[in-house]
């Protein structure tokens, strides 16, 4: 199976095809539209990611040593960003997720073409994902 780094590289290559921001946005919007909506029952305050101007919900499930993420937002662009994070990080072990430096965010140039406030939102999502990984790791290493 692909490593986190492999999937990151795929995304970086996909973005390398675009030579302007318009196309990058359009691609992210497209990803956002394609991300399946999160079941309403998971849109709880507990699942809400803080630090975003739009509402973002992140649901994490632990199955056979791996964490599976599903997420939603009322912003299509944010959904597109989440969709990339989910693609890279869903189905990985807690250790893999905790160790991932997620260089693709910088390599794709997401932080430079997203304004500061939006990249903070993206970083909040990353933080939340890593929190889940640490949480599941602790829970399952002690039992």
């Amino acid at each position: 199976m692909n490593t986190i780094r492999d999937t990151e590289k795929e995304i970086v290559e996909e973005f390398a095809l675009f030579d302007n921001n318009d196309d990058k946005y359009e691609y992210i919007i497209d990803l956002g539209k394609k991300l399946p909506p999160l079941d309403e029952k998971y849109k709880t305050d507990e699942n809400k990611v803080r630090g975003c101007q739009s509402s973002v919900w992140l649901q994490a499930d632990y199955k056979e040593g791996k964490i599976f993420f599903s997420a939603d937002s009322d912003s299509v662009l944010v959904k597109g960003l989440i969709s990339m994070l989910v693609r890279v990080l869903s189905g990985r072990t807690p250790d893999e997720i905790i160790a991932a430096p997620l260089d693709f965010i910088r390599e794709v140039g997401l932080t430079s073409f997203l304004a500061q406030t939006r990249s903070n939102g993206l970083l909040s999502m990353v933080k939340q994902i890593k929190h889940y990984a640490v949480g599941f790791k602790l829970k399952h290493s002690t039992t």
Binding site: N21, Q53, A115
Partner: peptide, 21 residues
Amino acid sequence: KIHPQDIAILLDNRGIAVRTG
């Protein structure tokens, strides 16, 4: 059905500064 933030990001990409939130 469109989040204000998405509008602002796309406007910004055309050099147009508005505020959302």
